[in-house]
Amino acid sequence: MIIASLLFYLFAAVCIASAVVVVTARNPIHSVLFLILAFFNAAGLFVLLGAEFLAMILVIVYVGAVAVLFLFVVMMLDIEALAITDTLKRHAFIGAGIGLFLVVELVLVASGWVASTGAGASVLAIPGNVTNTQALGALIYTHYIYPFQGCGLVLLVAMIGAIVLTLRRRPDAKRQDVATQVAKPRGVRLVKVPTGSGV
């Protein structure tokens, strides 16, 4: 359908353009905001593919949580627009080298790529009456259960590691003990005051 292909070109173009701006923007906050725009357009591409579950998860996880924390951290750092210094120029040279290497690799892989004969059939493997949320769940909780749970464990370890590394016990920190505070002290009486008459 023509609308779908127009939307595809719109999402793809905005996605690439905003990804470029992420790297080139002087202000780091603008970079993060354009990163969010790129995530959004990627989600739009997922919707066009019929993978609405992935699209929503992309928005919830990356835009709703990860990018918020990025923005949070970047705003806390007091960075003015970056000036191009000598160190930056030296790093730019190394960066360009790595980038060139990656581009050559990608071109080599893409030029040697041939679609396998069964690829067309596997695209249509999901029957029409099953939503892709169901299809995904049926796969990752049965066939791929061990890799899936493994990913979960890795994330758990990373989370606990981050907490252990940053947690400091400060002896001077004031803590609130809700139970003692709420407990009724002696000599205090709760009085029900009738409306409009005062104590």
């Binding site: 905001l33 969010i36 929503m56 928005v59 918020v68 939503t131 949320t133």
Partner: peptide, 25 residues
């Protein structure tokens, strides 16, 4: 009437914070 309506709502409500952060900054 989309199939992932609940997730859509959750996604949109998690975006609400951006208006506030951007305004503050």
């Amino acid at each position: 009437n989309i199939n992932v309506g609940v997730l859509y709502l959750f996604a949109i409500s998690s975006l609400g914070v951006y208006g506030i952060i951007i305004a503050g900054w």
